[in-house]
């Protein structure tokens, strides 16, 4: 491979990463629900993708490929975090500050409430909702990015929207 080709690949790869990085972070955040973990997930994805940059620049839909990688990486991280959290909870002393006024106020914030409701959904449903509502992606794109069939994407979206509405009604959350 000539030096010129390498430079072209590098430029193309860099522009792909620049355009998709925020989306990868938001998706990772949606799954792992922790800013530091989400950042680590994106970093891992970028490091791995660097090794495959020549392949990535030749793909029809590089963002979908990177989103899929982020999804898998985030789910792996979530699983290991759950294991870790379970172990830590067993060893941890009780949290006496769990109900401080500050925490109650923060929990009452409307958007935090919606966020909490959303976190009650299974990861796949959450991801599909996120990619549609936040990233504005078509069903086909979501299917490619999540490894789910079109039918699954539609089903998860339908269920997710209904569940969020039901939870909003149940908890009577109103935007101030």
């Amino acid at each position: 491979m000539t030096r010129a080709n390498t430079a072209i690949i590098l430029d193309h790869y860099s522009s792909i990463i620049t355009s998709v990085r925020d989306r990868l972070y938001r998706l990772a955040l949606r799954v792992v629900n922790d800013a530091d973990d989400a950042e680590d997930v994106v970093q891992d994805v970028l490091v791995k993708s660097w090794g495959q940059r020549e392949k990535i620049v030749c793909l029809d839909n590089p963002p979908a490929w990177l989103l899929r990688m982020t999804k898998h990486q985030a789910i792996d991280r979530l699983r290991s975090a759950r294991v870790r959290s379970a172990r830590e909870t067993e060893a941890a002393i009780p949290d006496h500050e769990a109900r401080t006024p500050y925490r109650i106020a923060a929990a009452n914030d409307t958007l935090s409430h919606v966020h909490r409701l959303l976190q009650q959904l299974p990861p796949d449903q959450r991801m599909v909702l996120h990619l549609r509502e936040v990233e504005g992606m078509e069903y086909q794109e979501i299917s490619e990015a999540t490894d789910l069939s079109m039918q699954q994407v539609k089903t998860y979206l339908h269920r997710g929207r209904h569940k969020i509405r039901a939870l909003l009604l149940k908890e009577k959350i109103v935007q101030p």
Binding site: T110, L111, V114, H115, E133, V134, E135, R165, I173, Q175
Partner: peptide, 13 residues
């Protein structure tokens, strides 16, 4: 009742 949901999507984006 659906306003918080749409507001949340805007915020998340």
């Amino acid at each position: 009742e659906l306003d918080p949901m749409f507001a949340y999507w805007d915020e998340a984006a």
